[in-house]
Design a protein around this nucleic acid. Structure first.
Length: 473
RNA sequence: GCCUCCAUAGCUCAGUUGGUUAGAGCGGCGGACUGUUAAUCCGUAGGUCCAAGGUUCAAGUCCUUGUGGAGGCGCCA
């Protein structure tokens, strides 16, 4: 692979290499990339030895095989290069049609050709970083004694309350069998009941935690919300650890440790990619007014997160800060905070993270009315042991809580919030037999990738994004 | 779902108050050069001005509707 050759340890050896042409300069210099690194290796050919018809076929995107000696470069831009002795064109790329020219393209254009965008420096870097983050997550949990649990993607449960779901059915949509009441008759469907794509693996992960003590899920999750933002996808990947014999503080510690670990892992293993993404961001922000530019460069920002404790405060404390804040007093907020109990809007979260604390913030102990049924109610009977981690530029990256382990309390909450207990006996059994304090959270993987890469649209950090009106590729 | 903005060459964009033949850079093609670094130099082709309808003597430009895109909001991860 090119990554290994560029280390320069094999100078003098005859090298065999495959890759795709990025540029072909001066009829002599091929910049070759194979995706192993953002850097290209330079192949030097003697154009006098090749027919014009061959040279014409060396174009951006062409797949080639080459053999030759790895030598110290005579030019200035690179340390090593390959003096080509044999060159084979494996796959042509018609320059009149190939959409990736050696020039800057807009992210929007590249999104339309998502099947080719991995071949650009930017998307190569993004998806190598995505891969590292994914690996680092598994490594973190594995090293810490967690069991990786595969929770179902098709579920009959719609009780998570996490949002609109995609229906899963084999019924003929042009001729749906009906019940006596005129509703679709799911008894005739594949699973003999209504099923959906999962919105969360949490409930199943709780079942696992009550046996393995520490589990995590890491898989695709689906929301059929009509969300048109740069932070939402209809299909996204979520990490959901669940830990038994643990409270909300353990949960926060776990989330903070995990985030710091995976960020450090990419800094240690993907520095070249991050440096490229940092430059890309600087260039992009040059076009913005000064006050909208980042205060820190990308790598500096990642190191800052690594080296500082996340600010932990309660919802109540946050409301007090917000009520006393300038934008609230001067009515600059679209939604003015005037009383305890209000749901925090993203403008408020941004104020806390980006203006007030200038660091990641963990908000805890939210009013129970604005949170899910399974969260443990505090002694004040008004708040629940929920925690959200807010990141600058991203907003909510983690949402978690200590779970209600007391059966009576849980049943009461389900009744209050109209969650059908009879359908969830399997879940309630965890509270019937050996119930124990436990907690967990959900981490939006793409939001993590957004933060680490400095990209601003979530559709650019997943290979083939799914969002309202779009399921191409 | 709501609000704002945008749509002109393969890409990025300019196009004046509505006025004759719609421009540039990059890319493509042809040639030159041959240690280049998104090479350089010379030449050249390339347009359903998003779609439909309307206003007007005249529409890339104004109006309406639709489609696509971007940003923001809500829902959340």
């Amino acid at each position: 692979m090119i990554k290994e050759l560029l280390l320069g340890k094999r100078i003098g050896e005859t090298i065999k290499i495959n890759g795709w042409v990025r540029t072909f300069r001066n009829n002599q210099f091929i910049a070759l990339n194979d995706g192993s690194t953002i850097s290209n290796i330079q192949l030097v050919i003697d154009f006098k030895e090749y027919e014009d018809t061959i040279l014409k076929r060396i174009n951006p995107g062409t797949a080639i095989y080459a053999e030759g000696q790895l030598v110290e470069s005579l030019g200035k831009g690179q340390k090593v290069e390959i003096k080509v002795a044999k060159l084979v064109i494996l796959g042509d790329s018609d320059p009149e049609k190939y959409p990736l020219q050696p020039k800057r393209h807009s992210l929007e254009f590249l999104r339309e050709i998502a099947h080719l965008r991995f071949r650009t420096n930017t998307f190569g870097a993004i998806f190598r970083v995505r891969n590292s983050l994914s690996f680092a997550i598994h490594k973190f949990f594995n090293d810490n004694g967690f069991v990786y649990m595969h929770t179902p993607i098709i579920t009959a449960s719609d009780a998570e309350g996490a949002g609109e779901m995609f229906k899963v059915t084999t019924l003929d949509l042009d001729d749906v069998p009906k019940t006596e009441n005129g509703h679709a008759d799911y008894r005739q469907d594949f699973f003999e009941q209504a099923t959906n794509l999962t919105v969360s693996g949490q409930l199943e992960a709780e079942l696992g935690a009550m046996a393995f003590s520490k589990v995590y899920t890491f898989g695709p999750t689906f929301r059929a919300e009509n969300s048109n933002t740069s932070r939402h996808l209809a299909e996204f990947w979520m990490i959901e650890p669940e830990i038994a014999f643990a409270d909300i503080t353990d949960d926060m510690n776990l989330a903070e440790d995990l985030l710091k670990y995976v960020i450090k892992y990419t800094l240690d293993n993907n520095l070249e990619d991050l440096e490229f993404l940092q430059q890309r961001l600087i260039q992009e922000e040059k076009q913005k007014p000064q006050n909208q530019r980042s205060e820190q460069a990308l790598i500096e920002k990642l190191e800052f997160v690594l080296n500082n404790d996340f600010e932990r405060l309660s919802y109540t404390e946050a409301i007090n800060i917000l009520m006393r804040s300038k934008p609230n007093k001067k009515k600059k907020f679209k939604y003015i905070i005037d009383k305890w109990g209000a749901d925090l809007q993203s403008e408020h979260e941004r104020y806390l993270v980006e203006k007030h604390f200038k660091k990641p913030v963990i908000l805890t102990d939210y009013p129970k009315d604005i949170k899910a049924f399974y969260m443990k109610v505090n002694d004040d009977n008004n708040t629940v042991r929920a925690m959200d981690i807010l990141f600058p530029g991203i907003g909510e990256i983690v949402g978690g809580s200590q779970r209600e382990e007391n059966l009576e309390m849980l049943l009461k909450r389900m009744e209050e919030m109209d969650v059908p207990a009879e359908e969830m006996q399997w879940y309630l059994d965890t509270r019937r037999y050996g119930s124990a304090e436990h907690a967990g959270f959900g981490l939006g993987f793409e939001r993590l990738v957004l933060f680490v890469t400095g990209m601003s649209n979530i559709r650019d950090v997943i290979p083939f994004p799914r969002y309202p009106g779009s399921a191409k590729f």
